[in-house]
Write a protein that binds this DNA or RNA. Sequence first.
DNA 1: TCAGTGATGTCAGTAACAGACATCATCGTA
DNA 2: TACGATGATGTCTGTTACTGACATCACTGA
Lengths: 189, 189
Amino acid sequence: MGRWQPDSEGRLQEAALALYAERGFDQTTAAEIAARAGVTERTFFRHFADKREVLFGRSSILKDRIVAAVVAAPADAGPLDAVGAGLDAAAAMLGQGRRDLAARRLAVIAANPELRERELAKLADYAAAVSAALRDRGVRDAQATMAAEAGMTVFRVALGRWANAADAGDLGAVMRASLDELREVTTGG
Amino acid sequence: MGRWQPDSEGRLQEAALALYAERGFDQTTAAEIAARAGVTERTFFRHFADKREVLFGRSSILKDRIVAAVVAAPADAGPLDAVGAGLDAAAAMLGQGRRDLAARRLAVIAANPELRERELAKLADYAAAVSAALRDRGVRDAQATMAAEAGMTVFRVALGRWANAADAGDLGAVMRASLDELREVTTGG
DNA sequence: TCAGTGATGTCAGTAACAGACATCATCGTA
DNA sequence: TACGATGATGTCTGTTACTGACATCACTGA
């Protein structure tokens, strides 16, 4: 056995989610989270840049996968189809986790403005990366921006629907359904 | 003459923009801004909820005007046309100010992640309000969300173009041009 | 004339975060 | 096997964003 319990990062994430859910984000101190995870406050801030980031641990991996899927989409696929491939990749990564956990996480985020802010920033970051990937595929600047931003809106809406759905459908299916709604809007206007 | 110089809020905004531009957001303390504006730090936080908010002073008024324009759009106007009316209202309010000031403000925001985060939150807030207004006009939920989000993307892109344009066009014209690009994307696919 | 109001100052406190340094299991290597 | 490097953690200290409580005092309306 090592000098310390393994996976402090994971324990910190669990502790934070539990405490944020119990008493709210503002009413939870970093020291309390750290104590619950069996580490010191300083260690918390070594693993996470700030109090919010602890809820967004896997986001850079998720971004990479989304972008990779967009890049790997068939050459003849349109911008929105490529975005759809990115959404499939996101669904594959997120849909395998426990749905109730995702719901808890989203509920905590929805309950706090600072956390919502951070989530938007993450999505905007994805959108910027997807937009760049689309441009690399030859899509015009304006089209790339709009398709990427629209895709992130679909992502957010679909994730919320899936996490809180009474009937537990597949995340990928919800994503595709939401994307179809988008197509309907843009074509049907 | 009053007990204090009038318009501390305005002076705080000017001081903050100047200092953020000079030495960066992180390297500027609230106390320094307050000192430059001739007030105490406590007064700064009475006027602005946090260090970022000082750059977003007029945003709630702007939101109200956008929403009002969406509500007031002709009954037979489509969702995107109603959003266009909202963008016109935004352009009317923002386009009259000094363009170089807007450019300075945007440059400061672009230079700092926390400030970008806050800007996204503001735009998301507008989008939510516009979306609600569209639903009141009878637009379906999914359509309303997408049209509102797309509108905010147009807003952001157009504002950036206008502020940094070498040839000083009218903000309203830039907004309309950007919106037309969006239409082109959604119809042309 | 005078009590009320509102914007500000003053003071003290909490908590988010960061730098610097110490500790000590583990691991590669001689 | 010994031993120096490494990496994750603890400890200590400091800055600064923000907040609550209370005092001040020009102005305002009765």
